[in-house]
Simulated assay, not measured.
Amino acid sequence: MIRVSAPAKLNLALHVTGQRADGYHLLDSLVVFAVLGDGLSIAPAPKLSLAVTGPMADGVPTGPDNLILRAAALLSPDLTAAITLDKHLPHAAGLGGGSADAAAALRGLARLLGCALPDMPSVLTLGADVPVCLSSSPQRMQGIGEVLSPLPPLPPLWAVLVNPRVAVPTGAVFNGLASKRNPAMTAPHWTGFDDFIRWLSEQRNDLEPPALTLAPEIGQTLAALQDSGAALSRMSGSGATCFGLYQSAAQAADAARRIADTQPGWWVQDTEIQTG
């Protein structure tokens, strides 16, 4: 039995810098990963199968379009294994859950087969977030997701992730952009928590304004995080999950409790950010 983690992906900043002729958007994003996430268990079996368990299992497709099964087919069309996805992240929430699951499947199945991972162009066929999720380490992600650069060491970080349980279609968010040619991030540089927050506050998530138009609940979520004492709050990816950043585990845990108490219908989780 092989067990592989699929940590939640957070876009702490996400700048849309252009659009290619084929429709793919060009991005410049600071990507980190939480300790919180999904998990996969993989075992040898006479045929390929996928089962889904966990608190967020409902609604996860298990047919051939599932990214985990597509990842398996990418490694080998004849691959056989019993895969179980323990689903903890909400669906279509701006946390890269499907991409993280696909990346975890690639890592685990490659170990099972004793083979190399696919090349970058092949991995990109699964989605723009899958290459960075394969690394599961802090990265600057550019291009359509294929240009990955290491970052300066991150300070210790904790986050509260909040999803108001509203659906925000990614396509509609991108279509709502006022401009698809926006300035890139400034060069990443910081020496500690305060310096990091100062630098990050000068960056953006260009998808946040159109997402707010589609789902005003995102504004309520950001306000709740800011009121909880977050050093910075922002939407992750195309939403609707938002994050607040904190300097200690105790601060994050206290903020998560207070938000969950006032908004019992929201998905609220505190987590440590992986800094390396």
Rank of each mutant, 00 (worst) to 15 (best):
V4C: 12
S5E: 15
P7C: 14
A8W: 00
A8V: 09
A8T: 09
K9M: 13
L10K: 00
N11F: 01
N11T: 11
A13I: 08
A13N: 05
L14W: 03
H15P: 02
G23H: 01
G23F: 06
V31M: 15
G37D: 04
G37Y: 03
S41Q: 14
A43I: 10
L50V: 10
T53A: 12
G59T: 11
G59A: 10
V60W: 02
T62S: 10
L69W: 01
L69C: 08
A71L: 06
L74M: 15
L75E: 10
S76I: 03
P77F: 00
D78T: 15
A81R: 00
A82G: 09
D86R: 06
K87F: 00
K87T: 07
K87S: 08
L89V: 13
P90V: 06
H91P: 13
G97C: 09
S99R: 04
D101P: 03
R107V: 11
L109I: 08
L113D: 15
G114Q: 00
G114L: 04
C115Y: 04
L117S: 02
L117E: 11
D119C: 04
M120D: 07
P121A: 08
S122T: 11
L124I: 08
T125G: 10
L126S: 05
G127I: 01
D129M: 04
V130N: 08
V132P: 00
S135C: 13
S136C: 13
P138R: 00
R140E: 05
G143C: 09
V147L: 12
V147F: 04
S149F: 07
S149R: 12
P152I: 10
P153L: 05
P156F: 03
L157T: 05
L157A: 10
V160H: 00
L161P: 02
L161Y: 00
V162I: 13
A172D: 15
V173G: 05
A178L: 14
S179R: 08
R181L: 07
R181A: 15
P183G: 12
A184Q: 08
M185G: 01
A187R: 10
A187G: 03
P188C: 07
P188K: 01
H189A: 15
T191R: 11
T191E: 15
N205T: 09
L207S: 03
P209Y: 03
P210V: 06
P210E: 04
L214Y: 03
E217A: 12
L222F: 05
Q226W: 02
D227S: 12
S228Y: 02
G229F: 00
A231T: 06
L232Y: 07
L232K: 04
S233Y: 02
A240T: 06
T241G: 03
F243W: 15
F243A: 13
Y246N: 10
Y246L: 09
S248L: 08
A250T: 15
Q251L: 13
Q251H: 14
Q251P: 01
A252M: 08
A253T: 13
D254N: 12
A255V: 09
A256G: 07
R257H: 11
R257F: 02
T262W: 03
Q263I: 04
P264H: 05
P264I: 13
W267S: 10
T271A: 08
T271V: 03
T275R: 11
